[in-house]
């Protein structure tokens, strides 16, 4: 049986009175793209820094690739590629020089794969870091993280600052890593990013792991936000009539627009809207926070199971 790639047991981290992470028990299996989701300040970066032994836990244990992160950090770092959430490098040096230095530290003989990655990400490695845009710095970070084909990629907000085309390229690179049997652990606060490539997702909030679920199940939230804009006035009693529909809730009127939350078929809504001249209809999927609330309601677990 393959070794669990990431395994934490009751992992906690306090900064004085502040609890950054509370009793995190999590496992990530090999060959997965695992999304680590949560709003800013949820504890995602704290978890990543604990896994890399950059910070030490207040309690609990963390094992990566079957080894204790504290005792075997150097061996593990050979097999891990890391992209920090905020990448800072030596500003006066060119990307090529930095890549060569990191390759030397890693004991790599050549940087052909790094050059290939840079080409795919359209990164000019002859420039100094100080001349790079945020997106280009991110690309360099991805090259550094992936250049040694690590068994585990730990990526903190990997697509932040990348344009949509490069996000696609990143998705391809992550899928290639997965197809080669390697594991990708990526943090994000953007659901769509996670939806595109992740097999499984953990949701973190205020330092607490709230859920671990497959992406398919997580996003199977059956409601949408519907905004109907009328050309002139909203038909009389429309909001009251809409509220009578079982699958409709949170109906609000704003000028010529009516916004509602629909958790069922469209037909009853269309029939109710009836006589009014509809100028536009906008349908939006729920945000991560809304999915979150859908799952937890008033703080109670509704739709997903917390891994124990």
């Amino acid at each position: 049986m393959a070794t669990t790639v990431i395994e934490t047991r009751d992992l906690s981290k306090n900064y004085g009175q502040t609890q950054a992470l509370t009793n995190l028990t999590l496992s990530v299996e090999p060959g997965q793209i695992f999304g680590y989701l949560g709003p800013n300040g949820a504890g995602k970066t704290t978890t990543i820094r604990l896994l890399l032994d950059l910070i030490r836990p207040s309690s609990g244990t963390a094992r990566v690739l079957g080894q204790d992160v504290r005792q075997h950090s150097v061996e593990l770092h050979r097999r891990i590629g890391f992209l920090p959430g905020e990448l800072n490098l030596w500003k006066g040096q060119t990307a090529r020089r930095i890549v060569e230095h990191i390759a030397a530290v890693r004991g790599m003989d050549d940087i052909h794969y790094a050059q290939e990655l840079a080409e795919r990400l359209k990164l000019d490695m002859s420039k100094r870091v100080r001349d790079y845009s945020t997106g280009n710095k991110r690309k360099l970070g991805l090259v550094i993280a992936m250049m040694h084909r690590p068994d585990l990629l730990i990526l903190d907000e990997p697509t932040s600052g990348l344009d949509p085309l490069m996000q696609q390229t990143f998705n391809q690179l992550a899928m290639e890593a997965k197809n080669e049997g390697r594991t990708v652990f990526l943090s994000s606060h953007v659901l769509s990013e996670v939806q595109a490539i992740c097999d499984k997702v953990a949701i973190l909030r205020d330092g607490d792991l709230k859920a671990v679920e497959t992406v398919e199940r997580l996003t199977r939230v059956e409601f949408r936000w519907v905004t109907v804009k009328f050309r002139e006035t909203v038909p009389a009693n429309l909001t009251q009539d809409l509220r009578q529909i079982n699958s409709v809730s949170e109906v609000t009127q704003n000028g010529e627009s009516v916004r509602l939350r629909l958790a069922g078929d469209f037909d009853p809504v269309l029939r109710t809207v009836g006589a009014g001249y509809v100028e536009d209809v906008q349908i939006s999927t729920p945000t991560l926070e809304e999915i979150f609330l859908e799952f937890y309601g008033n703080g109670k677990l509704v739709a997903v199971s917390k891994e124990s």
Binding site: L52, L54, V74, F82, P84, N88, R106, G107, I144
Partner: peptide
Amino acid sequence: EAGILDVVLSLPVP
């Protein structure tokens, strides 16, 4: 302070 050490210490260097 610059955050560069995160990258340096993620390499296989004690």
